[in-house]
Every structure is written in C-alpha cells, then in structure tokens.
Amino acid sequence: MKKYTMVLICLISILSFMAPALAGKDEKKPDSSVQKQKYALPDSVMNITKENTYPNRSEDLPQLHPSELTKNLTDSSRVKIENPDLIRLLNESSVNSTPFALGYRAIVYLGEWPLNYESAETSPNWQFQKINTNYFDNRGGDQLYQIHYVQEQQKEIKGGLTAKVNKAESVQKMILRSAVKSTGLPLTFETTVGAGTKKDQIYNVQPSKLGYLYAYAPAIHEKGKVTYGEVYLMLKGNKKFIVTKNVASQEIGAWIPLENHISFGFTSSNQPR
C-alpha cells in the first residue's frame, strides 16, 4: 500500500510541474496576419490631416465579400481571380440548380477581364511632386528669422498608371489594394492640399542668407504585372465553374500619392535660387 501511495505522490508532483508548461501552450500568440506598416515615414514627411483646408475623401476600398456561389466559382478557376468588379458581378448573379439538369450544358461569356495583379516592387518617392515654396530674404538682417510652411495655392496631386491598359479602373483598384496592404500607408490616386494650409514646424534663416522651404507631395511607386483573360461561366448538369481562356500578362506600374501628407525640404543660400 505504501508503494502505491508513493507512486501516486510522484505522479501528482510531475503533473503539478507540467501544468504551467501546458497552460503556456494555450496562450494566444500574436496574430502574424496583422499587416504592419512596411515603410516608416522619415522625419521630413508630416501628416497634415488636421491642418489641411481641403477636406479630402479617403479612397473607398470596401472589402467585398464573395457570396458562396462566387467563392465556389472563383475557386474553380485555374487563374486566381481578385478583380473586385468581376467579383461584384458574380455576387449579383444567381444560377439555380435543378434535379432534372442531366445532360444540360451552357456556356456564358462574361467578357475579357483583368483577373489579378502581382506586385514585383514597391518603393517610396518622398519628393514625388513639388507643390509649394516659402522663402525669406535675410541677407540684410542681423538676426535669425523663422519661417514655417504656408500653402500659397490649392494643389491637386494625381497619380495613375504608367501605361494604357484595358479596364484601367479595375486595374487601379487591384494595384491600390496591393500597395495599401504591403505598405500600411494612406494611399490614394488623387489628393488635394488646400490653400492656406499651415504647419507650425519652424525653420531658421541665418543672417545674410536666403531661406527656402520646399513642400513636396510624397508617393509610392508600384511595379508589377496584371493578368488578363477571357472569362466563361460553364454550366454542365448541376455543376457550375469558371473557365479562363487566352490568358496573358502585361507589365504595369503606378504612382500612388499619400493622402494628407507632405514632405519638407529646407535649404539656405547666399544667392537667389
């Protein structure tokens, strides 16, 4: 009896040591799927959302959820389908099955579509477009003079594709979604900085110098390829699936500005620039 009692005590001791380790395995690990900002903004790039006198509307990128039918159809395609416009079209479609569909066959041509976009390179250009210059001539002064940014004229900054492609709007949506996901930045193909927009950051102009404060619109350059194909909806008995034909890829690039962000550059000189 004593022998069994000792064995039982040993088992309880082992389990008590194992319990914390087992509990640790149940702890939730950080979700690695959460997208982190890939590009850290340099100190020269500042957010002007609160100061901007023009109320920009953020790019509408709704996360379109495919219906069960759409998911089954896109999964059946040998080429990945990511085009939100095509997914919307499939979501709005309905195909009813019937138990008497034996021998039934139909082919529905849905048109030629950009099917997906694959990114090859994503890079920032913090001085994509100069939008403003503030300056002060302190050559006749004997003290420091402080200047800060004031937008003199309303400036509209537009990005876009670097080449002409079919269904450009759908291609832009796919490229924008890819760039936002990979960078975590507030990107848009069109943004505006209103006249009178100010920033309190101070820049000192030395005596006997001219000071120039340049403001730039930053942007992301996206480069990759878009895949096109003719899309057919095949109905065969009770089966429904997507067939893609004449699939081809085309290289494409895009410039995508950052919304409500400005990059500043300050320089001084002895002579006017």
Rank of each mutant, 00 (worst) to 15 (best):
K38R: 07
C10F: 14
Q37W: 01
I256Y: 06
P124C: 10
N47R: 09
F128Q: 02
N96G: 11
L258T: 02
P84R: 09
S33M: 06
N204C: 01
C10S: 12
T267S: 15
K71N: 09
Q35G: 00
N204L: 04
E112W: 01
A21G: 07
K29W: 01
M46N: 04
T5F: 13
L73D: 15
F128T: 01
V150S: 08
I262F: 03
T267F: 10
S249V: 09
N138Y: 01
P20I: 07
L235F: 12
G103A: 11
Y149N: 07
N96A: 15
V45H: 04
Q146W: 06
A40Q: 06
A19P: 00
G140S: 09
Y39E: 02
S182Y: 02
V79C: 08
H148Q: 12
P272Y: 05
T53E: 05
L86Y: 01
M174I: 05
G24H: 05
T49R: 00
R57T: 14
P124G: 12
L110I: 05
Q154A: 10
L233Q: 05
I252W: 07
A254R: 11
Q250K: 12
Q201I: 10
Q146N: 11
G24R: 06
H148T: 11
G224V: 14
Y228R: 05
S33Y: 03
L258H: 03
G229N: 09
N56H: 06
D43M: 09
F136L: 04
L15G: 02
K29A: 11
I81K: 03
S182T: 14
V45K: 01
Q63M: 03
A19R: 03
R177D: 12
G211C: 05
R57F: 10
S13A: 15
G253P: 14
A120Y: 13
K199W: 09
I107V: 14
G103E: 13
V180F: 00
I262Y: 03
E68M: 14
S94C: 09
R78D: 14
T53Y: 02
D26T: 00
K223D: 14
P20L: 07
A254Y: 04
T227Y: 07
L176H: 04
G184L: 01
E27R: 08
G196S: 05
